[in-house]
Structure formats: structure tokens, C-alpha cells
Design a protein around this nucleic acid. Sequence first.
DNA 1: ATTATGTCTCTTGTATACAATACCACACCT
DNA 2: AGGTGTGGTATTGTATACAAGAGACATAAT
Lengths: 232, 232
Amino acid sequence: MQDFEMKINEYLPLRDVVFNTLRSAILTGKLEPGERLMEIALANKLGVSRTPIREAIRKLELEGLVIMTPRKGAEVARITEKDLQDVLEVRESLENLATELACDRISDEEIEELKIRNAAFIEAIEKGKADFSELAELDVAFHDVIFNASKNTRLMQILSNLREQMYRYRLEYLKNPEYYGMLVKEHALITEAVINRDKDAVKQVMDRHIMHQRDAVLTLIRRQEEERNRKQ
Amino acid sequence: MQDFEMKINEYLPLRDVVFNTLRSAILTGKLEPGERLMEIALANKLGVSRTPIREAIRKLELEGLVIMTPRKGAEVARITEKDLQDVLEVRESLENLATELACDRISDEEIEELKIRNAAFIEAIEKGKADFSELAELDVAFHDVIFNASKNTRLMQILSNLREQMYRYRLEYLKNPEYYGMLVKEHALITEAVINRDKDAVKQVMDRHIMHQRDAVLTLIRRQEEERNRKQ
DNA sequence: ATTATGTCTCTTGTATACAATACCACACCT
DNA sequence: AGGTGTGGTATTGTATACAAGAGACATAAT
């Protein structure tokens, strides 16, 4: 268990603070897959009682980030290749839906926003200054504009959840500059297609975008798998 | 607050029993939208302490069935027409995905299962004996075969969640015999198309199936809305 | 040697006690 | 009359206490 700390936010209940803390610790790998989440240990570490810890774990459980076995406790969910494949299959379908809806429903302000985010992402990549998590955030911001433009709350919620499930892997993926050119080009095409409200074009490029991400992530997880096997 | 009781299951933690109890009370309307969920009251009613109640509420919160306002408490989420529209939009896309995947991946045993479920549903409708919730269950069982055949765990999970969000409305919808003929026909077509692994046909009929359901549910919720307005 | 059993400890599950906050009612002031 | 303040009460938030189950280890029986 790597170190992680709580950001204390005066007006958020402790359980939510704990929830956010644990969540991001899991997503960034500070809590490793398979690691047990022991209430007392976490409570001491974060300086609170077991109650908020437990309530936070309940939420993580429902989100699928931790697995509970009754009377045994919680552990960080292990993500298998199959899990990722499943997530990617659903994302492919829903990102498409979101982008098509965005074509119909995006407002002029949102179009401006999209242009700005796109430019920011490109700039960050080309200047090569941003670190990977900043890059990830810029990427998220770009796609969020499209999600929001779909005007479908439920869709946005499901998609951001699916995206978070893959956060770890996406981060690794953004560390590999070999993909940058492709990413920039695809974002540009997506932006253009959405602005023109051209659903066919959007579908094409979005399919490719997700497919590339899929390939990259799967390559990555397979490599990790191999390493793990070699270690044994 | 209508009456509802806990099914006591020896080896499930109380929090999960409470969670399931509250959840189905919400979905079937025994707990009405906007109703406050007060911990002590619920705890007394269900004969447990506040702790399991609170943990159940945390999960319902994440699922979107209750809305929390810090230091004020939880209330049953109000479902607007917009919410339903959003859910239906996502379902449309995902049911399609599931059925297409099922075409590729369905096994011979599952095909047999599908035929059986289809026949059972048709029989129940034609004999007119089953009550509405039985009918709903048979319908669910039919669609579940397809979900399972998609072999995508995440997809199955999201879809059954979305379906549950609409449970109330679907039940009303099944009370109206005017839809029965259409339902039976569509199920038959879906079965046939999946068996033939004919994705194009499947997409067509599934689109129609969901569209019809969408229209029915939206008509319904609008009628309810009017009634509510008349009452005031 | 292996399996069964019992005890000890660690951890979770549940209940309860205590703290803090929000809401409501009533009175008071303007 | 209307707004504002103040206290009391109801409800949530958090901590802790107690109960019970699961795992580990040791010991005894076969």
C-alpha cells in the first residue's frame, strides 16, 4: 500500500472525502488490485473512525472498484483482460451514441468550448511539457465537452464511470509518445465532424479512435500479464 | 409510505437485505418519489439499527435511486420524463449491442433456452392467466437469455440496472392488453433473427421493439403527469 | 504423518452513544 | 404585518462498544 492522503474539505461529509480518496488511490494504482481494504487500518491512516470508511467502501463496492466477500472484507477489484474487453465493447457503443447525439444537440458555446479543448490538448502534446496525468485530464476535458453536448445525463454518468474503470491503463497509454500523432489527428477529425454535425463522419472517426485505444490498452495489459507470469 | 417488509436471508449481511428491500420498495412505488428516507424510522420499521440502513442508503445513492443532501438526509429520487428519455436512449443503443453480440456468440443451449422462454411468454399472454408481475418476469427472462448470450458481463450489469430503473412504468405498460399482439410478434421476430444470427434483421426489430416500449412508457408518464397536475 | 478439533486473535457486522447541524415554532422587534 | 432572532427538537454525522464469524496455529487422536 503506497501512501495516500485525504484532502480535507470542510463541508463535505467525511464518508465522501474518504470515498474520493480511496477511489483515486485505486484508480492511480496506489492501492493495488487484490489488496485488502482493512477498515481499522484505513481508519487510522486517514484519521477517522470506521464508520465513514465503511460507508465509502459500500459505494466503491457498487461502483465495482472493490469486491466484497461477506465477513471477510473488501479488496481492490482485480481487472482481467476480459473485464477490459467488456468495458471497451460497451464504451465503443456508447461513445458513438454520445457523439451522434452531440451532433444533433451541441450548442454554439459548446462548439467554441470543443475547439478550445482540442487546441489545448494539441498544444500540450506538441510542446511536450505536460506530464501524463495532465495530458489525461486534457483528454478527459475534450471528451467531456462531447458527453455534455449529448444532453443525456445518464449517458454521461455511465460513460464517465466506464472511463474511470480504465484510468490506470489509459495513463500508461498516454506515456507512449508513439500514439501522439494519431491521437491529435483523431481529435481534430472528431472536432471537425461534430462541428459540421456530420454523423457519418463522426461515427467513422470515433470508431477508429476507440478501436485504437482498445488495441493499445489490450497490448498493454497483455504485456503486464506476461511480466507477472515471468515473475512467478 | 406503504408497507413493505424484509425478506430475512440468514447468510446475507443485513445491509444487503435492507438494500434489496429499499430498492424494490422504491422500484415498485411503495416508497414514493420525493419521500424522505429517515434512518431511525426505517430502522424501527425493519427491526435493525441505523448502521445497515445507512450503508444501504449509500449504495442506493450511488445507484441514483435516492438523492442525498448532506446533513439533511436522503429522499427517493424523483424521476422526470427527461430521466426516462435519457435511460431509454441509452437502452436503445445497448439492447442493440447486446442483441448483435448475441448473434455472434449465442450457444446452441442458449438458443434452446431462448425458444423456451419465448414460448412461455407467448403462452402466458395468450392464456391470459398470468398476472402482470409474472408477465414482467417472463419478459425479463426472455431478454435475459439474450443479455447472457452477449457474454459481456458489464453490458449485462448495466442493462439490467437500466431496466430496473423503468420497472414501475414497464409494469403499467404490461397491464394494457392493447400492446400484447405487438409484443408477441416482436419477441417471435427477435427469437428468429437471433437464431439465424441475422444481425441486420435483429437490429431492425429490436429498434422497433424498444421504440414501441419508449412510446408506451412516455405516453404513460405523460398521462400520470397530467393527473398529478389535475389534482393540484 | 495426517486429519480433526479447539482456542486465540483478527476482522467484520451491528448496535448504540455522543456531537453537530438544520429545521421549526414562537416570540420579539421594527 | 413582516421580518428576524432564539431556543428546542428532530435528524444526520461520527465514534465507539460489543457480538460474532473466519482464519491460523497448535495440540491431540487415529
